[in-house]
Nucleic acid binder design. Structure first.
Lengths: 156, 156
DNA sequence: GTCATTTGGTACCGATTCAGTCCCGTTTTG
DNA sequence: CAAAACGGGACTGAATCGGTACCAAATGAC
């Protein structure tokens, strides 16, 4: 199904939530409550997002997390990569040198193209857009024609 | 990592191999030998591809598999969907309504857009192209129309 | 200075999913 | 009828994933 992992999904939900009040610092517990997930799980995701420098953190009594950049400057691709590693449909697309047949692979060019498009698609969606879906951007998308297969775990 | 399953990967390799001699009927054993995978595994994948009507099959002593359509008319998306089910980046599967918040989900539009782009990327690569990598096709997916401001490197 | 609070890192377990194999039935041909 | 080949599941071991727990480090209140 070429699906996102649950943790990545959580990551996007969490980041979307934070993007609605970009300046505010929030604790893991508060966030967990807001998105309706187990505090431990939220915490785990927050750690990953922080390590990837998408979030800044502060420890201590009034500690918490806050966006490291403005929501416009954070893309879905960055969030997903932070949680589940390099984005790539095939191994050869995620990092060079993983596939033994790399040099001789007749399909490599095709895969690289697919990988690039996928990455661009995810990189083209900013948190700002993701959190607060405005009327569909620049180019109107024909919703009726969209291939179904979607929805995600929309946390409250 | 948003990665393809191994079985899907095998599927593409097998189909690519068949696309190089589109008219010929090949047995599972012969194919397994050609692509260097276990016969049982190849057989499993072939069954899936056949059930999805990408291949035609004949039983009996001179039986085997053959492409159901010309390589130009079979896309990567079709092969992948045949092996691992409907392509979709997010959960809540093919059936609508699995996600309670579906109607109110603020990110749904974004996800649908991503799904659509991914699907188009995979649908835009034909077996013919995939098996015998030619110079990039005449009409690549028009990313600019979907995400104005587009270009980006694929580097992880 | 001490203590409650909150993040950081890691190790761990249970469950689910995946890859791979095997078995048996059906079809076709010689 | 016998052999070759596909069709459809069932089964198993392994890998991955989701989730939890634990302890260390930092911070601020008192």
């Amino acid at each position: 199904m070429l699906r996102l992992s649950k943790l990545s999904d959580y990551g996007t939900v969490i980041m979307a939530h934070m993007a609605r009040e970009p300046a505010r610092s929030v604790s893991a517990a508060e966030l967990a409550d807001a998105v309706g997930l187990a505090p431990t799980t939220v915490s785990k995701v927050l750690k990953l997002l922080t390590r990837a420098q998408l979030l800044g953190s502060r420890r201590g009594v009034h500690g918490g997390y806050a966006l490291a950049r403005s929501p416009e400057e954070i893309s879905l691709a960055q969030v997903i990569a932070a949680v589940e590693g390099p984005i790539g449909v095939t191994e050869c697309g995620a990092a060079a040198g993983l596939c033994a047949q790399e040099a001789a692979c007749p399909s490599r060019a095709s895969w690289l193209r697919v990988n690039r498009v996928v990455h661009e698609a995810l990189d083209g969606v900013s948190l700002a857009e993701f959190a607060r879906p405005a009327p569909p951007p620049a180019t109107p998308v024909n919703l009726a024609a969209i291939h179904p297969g979607g929805g995600h775990t929309c946390a409250p």
